[in-house]
Amino acid sequence: MAFLQKLLTTPSPSGYCQDIMKLVAEETAKLGYPMEITPKGNGIVTLPGSREGEGTVGLTAHVDTLGAMVRSIKPDGKLRFTPIGGYAMQTVEGEYCLIHTRDGRKYEGTVLSTKPSVHVYSDARDWKREEANMEIRIDETVGTKEDALALGIGVGDFISWDPRTRLLDNGWIKSRHLDDKASVAALFGAMEWLKREGKRPARPVKMIFSTYEEVGHGSSFIPGDIMEMIAVDMGAIGDDLSATERDVSICAKDSTGPYDYAMTTKLIELARREGLPHAVDIYPHYGSDASAALRGGSNIRAALVGPGVHASHGMERTHADAVVNTAALLLAYIME
């Protein structure tokens, strides 16, 4: 949970993951595992298996999050932004943010609609929350475009949302970006257990920490020795889905189609055997890093599991039980 808090409070919108990958590398080094960085910035940690020649299992979770970039600077110095990832604009209205300049400076700002006050605009409540009607107010003395430029702010600068992270004593965790940093923490929990207990997985395991999942191509390339891949990503909650925030969610099918029958069945059997609260669900508006790997041409079997997360791509919430039990299910799978 302490490492999860570090992950959540490290800005990492897709394409701006250098700081969080440094954090991930430092943590893997503490556990005694080397990490390889791929050309596009993904991290791969290889865990030797006790049995060789049966193919490698890949576990992938993504460190990248939703965010934005500066699209243009308006004449009054406010910023028009373009989204990174798929979210509804009303979920970021009123949010605090950081603008990351290309020369390393950071400025605070606030996301607002272009009609932010009911005392001024008669249609403020009905004003459509869409990209063209949203802007960022910079918390500096800025009244013109030139003022913003003088701060070093420019088109293409990254913008990260304040995660508003809270880890409560009763186990509840609420924060932006639990998709998918809760799953990253679960993978580190599994690695920590293996190191502490002096165990090896049955087959070699490659853990992939991807940096472009929110824009669709996080693990589109994976090492050729991987035969089975489990995407570890947040479980959706709501509508006719049965998972809760305390469950491990096992996805049988998402928008890209059904996941591997044998792998999904095995995960369900292991969750039952280990007594882990879980749910099997269908995600109609969802894709994963396993989907990206399959679309990228990987000849693999694939499955999808993760902790249940409420209000995904908004103000998210999960429970420590779901994170810990996701790690437990993954360990049960790779130790078989």
Rank of each mutant, 00 (worst) to 15 (best):
Q5R: 14
L7M: 05
S12T: 07
P13V: 09
I20C: 01
K22Q: 15
L23Y: 06
V24D: 00
A29N: 10
A29M: 07
K30F: 06
E36A: 14
T38A: 13
T38N: 10
N42L: 08
I44Q: 01
I44K: 00
L47C: 02
P48V: 04
S50W: 01
R51S: 12
G58A: 08
T60Y: 00
G67C: 07
G67D: 04
A68G: 15
M69A: 12
R71M: 12
S72D: 08
I73K: 02
I73D: 03
D76N: 15
G77F: 01
G77C: 02
G77L: 02
K78N: 15
K78D: 09
K78W: 03
R80A: 15
F81Q: 01
F81E: 01
I84W: 01
A88Q: 13
M89G: 00
Q90W: 08
T91D: 03
I99D: 02
T101E: 05
Y107A: 10
Y107L: 09
Y107R: 13
T110L: 15
S113Y: 07
S113N: 11
T114E: 14
K115C: 08
H119Y: 07
V120F: 13
V120N: 10
Y121E: 11
S122N: 10
S122M: 07
A124D: 08
A124L: 07
R125I: 05
R125V: 09
E130A: 12
A132G: 11
D139K: 12
E140R: 13
E140D: 06
T144C: 07
A150E: 11
V155N: 06
V155A: 05
G156A: 13
W161D: 01
R166S: 13
L168T: 08
D169Y: 05
I173Q: 01
I173E: 01
R176G: 03
L178V: 12
D179W: 08
D180W: 04
D180G: 09
K181L: 15
A182W: 03
V184G: 04
A185H: 02
F188W: 12
G189E: 07
A190P: 02
E197F: 02
E197R: 14
G198Q: 09
P201E: 09
A202F: 13
R203G: 01
P204E: 06
K206N: 05
E214Y: 06
G218I: 02
D225C: 06
E228T: 07
A236S: 06
A236M: 12
G238C: 06
G238E: 04
D240R: 05
L241P: 00
A243G: 14
S249H: 07
S249P: 03
C251H: 02
A252G: 14
S255Y: 02
S255H: 09
T256I: 01
Y259H: 15
D260N: 14
Y261C: 05
A262F: 11
A262T: 13
T265H: 14
L270I: 08
A279G: 07
P284T: 13
H285T: 13
G287M: 05
G287L: 00
S291C: 11
A292Y: 04
S298A: 15
I300Y: 02
L304F: 14
V305N: 00
V305H: 00
P307S: 06
P307I: 02
A311M: 10
A311H: 12
G314H: 07
G314Y: 06
G314D: 06
M315E: 08
M315N: 13
H319D: 10
D321H: 08
V323T: 03
T326G: 09
A327K: 01
A328V: 04
A328F: 00
L330S: 02
L331R: 03
M335A: 05
M335V: 04
